[in-house]
Design a protein around this nucleic acid. Structure first.
Length: 598
DNA sequence: AATGTTGGCGCG
DNA sequence: AAAGCGCGCCAACATT
């Protein structure tokens, strides 16, 4: 596809902030980028967005090791400084990039191949290509616009570097910027690789649960099983037709049968003893599967044996990723059966065990807690403090992190506070700050949003001390307290996971099946598939869901991949939290099918 | 007809 | 007394 790639403008950054070499027009940007990647190990691409540019490079067969994503960085800086994210800098059209070829130093070394034996030499080579020298063939306003944009990019980048260095903890904030940028690369690579998805297995699952697919075009027809259930539900409720998808209709029909409900949520229905309830619960579960992940979803999102979701890096205020289209982060567990490795390949499924409480232990520097979090089952280790009851330890921790205190949670929270005062104090301080309208920051310096004007208006003290306080004020304050309480933990956990991803990428990129694999897979009839596939003998990161990664790789590499995830987890712990006794174990399975993991 | 809101539920 | 944190997506319903 390189032939169809638009021309791009490129220049090399100088060693001084804001300095840049002459802009050069290149008519094959992917080839040029690839040449830099090969000959100038450590090159870092500065560009407007990976989301805009990198997919086209990947389609052209080009991977990059590191970048500085100006748009993602802008979001982090705007959040930190309380400036509007809308005041985004004017950035050039997509195909303008800067090559930062200065030798990586310390922090900037993230995230390329680590300095370990066995990795490719990353010393810059004197024979690096430099900017290719082409006569400008684009002329007139188009070229001028790109040229101006490129100059803006140089300026904006220098400004961002200055603001990163000015952070009260520039090391950590710089790490956050590097990790967020690496995340942008990983996200594009995962979309490109796609999750291996067996449409035939998915279809069989649906058919087994719902009945045969309603015949063509009938998008809105209910499959057989849903029609049956709707009929039985109506029969139980007096015989008049009722659409169970309509909360209003259902509430009325239930009331007519003498069942009063505040809502039609499954959790509420489950508490009711009536023969219609099991039918309703089954209907709801199946209707949800049909609507959200049924045949229409399959048609829309799966092609060529892959599900290719689009990730939105940093799309959640806590820094977690969101996804756009296809609901990639809400795939129902039953459908994991359809995620099957290619022949000769396996899935390495690795998730961080009990990540959030471990993060809290490391954040708070609570030695007693940290020792319990050193390894193994964290809740079991804490159980002693709760009369030996692991479940109680878990409730206490979740309550501390989410701000719940219903039921016996309040009492358990008191135990937690007594035994692990620093851990409890950490989240409680965050909650107080939030209730007072302040902002809080994660371990690497992601800042939570300031309260809205509406919130400030509601919670403002009344002008006369005797006036009754708006009961909504206390409620709003506590809600924000729960948000900031959770933010410090969830956002810091998201950072650990992001750094894990950033540390895992280069390790995977360095792995290939040296001999025989291409021939072997061709002999299995995969040659046609391989023709359009990226890096056919290399592990592919294909899924990332908050604290879990899936790597799709040739079976012989599974052991190496599993070790790499463990190493990356340990490295992420060191980079994010420094010297802490807390460990971040990964629970890893090597499986042919996602449903068989752990 | 198009757009916005609500109730509900999937995931972590 | 009551209250969990964060998302995206669907059908139904409300509004323009």
């Amino acid at each position: 596809m390189p032939a169809g790639f638009p021309a791009g403008l490129l220049c090399e950054l100088g060693s001084d902030p804001g300095a840049a070499g002459p802009p050069v027009l290149v008519d094959d940007l992917p080839a040029t980028v690839a040449r830099y990647e090969q000959r100038v190990p450590g090159v870092r691409w500065v560009w407007p967005t990976s989301a805009g540019l990198y997919p086209a490079l990947l389609r052209a067969g080009v991977r990059v090791a590191r970048c500085h994503d100006v748009t993602l960085t802008h979001g982090l800086l705007a959040g930190r400084d309380g400036s509007s994210a809308a005041s985004a800098p004017e950035l050039p059209a997509l195909h303008a990039v800067l090559a930062d070829t200065s030798p990586p130093l310390g922090q900037a070394e993230l995230f390329g191949p680590p300095d370990e034996p066995g990795w490719p030499d990353r010393a810059p080579r004197p024979d690096h290509p430099g900017p290719p020298d082409h006569p400008d063939r684009l002329r007139g306003p188009a070229l001028e616009a790109i040229r101006t944009g490129l100059a803006n990019l140089v300026t904006v980048h220098a400004d961002q570097q200055r603001r990163i260095s000015a952070d009260a903890d520039a090391r950590r904030f710089g790490l956050l910027v590097a990790a967020e940028s690496a995340g942008g690369l990983a996200a594009a690579e995962m979309s490109f690789a796609g999750i291996p998805w067996r449409a035939d297995v998915h279809d069989e699952l649906l058919t087994g649960l719902l009945g045969a697919r309603p015949p063509g075009g009938a998008q809105f027809a209910r499959p057989r099983r849903l029609t049956e259930l709707a009929g039985q539900i109506a029969g139980q409720l007096g015989g008049r037709p009722v659409n169970p998808d309509s909360p209003a209709q259902l509430t009325r029909a239930l009331a007519a049968a003498g069942i009063r409900v505040g809502s039609t949520r499954s959790s509420e229905l489950r508490r009711i003893d009536h023969p219609v309830i099991p039918l309703l619960l089954e209907y709801k579960e199946l209707a949800r599967l049909h609507a959200a992940h049924g045949w229409a979803w399959l048609d829309t999102w799966v092609s060529g044996g892959r599900f290719r979701p689009e990730y939105v890096v940093g799309g959640v205020v806590s820094g977690r990723w969101a996804s756009r289209g296809g609901g990639a982060l809400q795939i129902p567990r039953v459908l994991r059966r359809a995620v099957v490795a290619d022949p000769g390949w396996v899935l390495v499924v690795a998730d961080a065990a009990q990540l959030e409480p471990r993060v809290l232990a490391a954040l708070a520097g609570d030695d007693a807690f940290a020792e319990a979090a050193a390894g193994g089952d964290l809740y079991a280790a804490l159980a002693d403090a709760f009369g030996g009851d692991r479940a109680k330890a878990k409730v206490a921790l979740l309550s501390a992190m989410y701000g719940g205190a219903g039921g016996e949670a309040g009492q358990l929270l008191a135990v937690l506070r007594r035994r692990f005062p620093r851990a409890a104090g950490y989240v409680e301080a965050a909650a107080r700050a939030g209730e007072e309208g302040q902002v809080v920051r994660s371990v690497l310096g992601r800042t939570c949003p300031a309260p809205s004007a509406a919130w400030r208006a509601v919670t403002e003290e009344s002008p006369t001390p005797d006036a009754p306080r708006d009961p909504g004020a206390a409620r709003a304050a506590r809600a924000r307290g729960r948000f900031t309480r959770n933010f410090v933990v969830q956002a810091s956990a998201a950072e650990w996971a992001l750094v894990l991803l950033a540390c895992l990428r280069p390790r995977l990129a360095a792995m290939t099946v040296q001999n025989g694999f291409r021939a072997a897979s061709a002999s299995r009839g995969l040659a046609d598939d391989l023709a359009g596939r990226w890096d056919p003998d290399r592990p592919h990161l294909v899924f990332f869901q908050h604290d879990e990664v899936i790597v799709h790789c040739p079976a012989p590499l599974a052991g190496l991949v599993a070790s790499a995830t463990a190493e990356a987890a340990a490295e992420a712990g060191r980079l994010v939290f420094g010297d802490t006794p807390v460990q971040f174990p990964m629970s890893t399975s090597v499986v042919g099918c996602y449903a068989d993991a752990k």
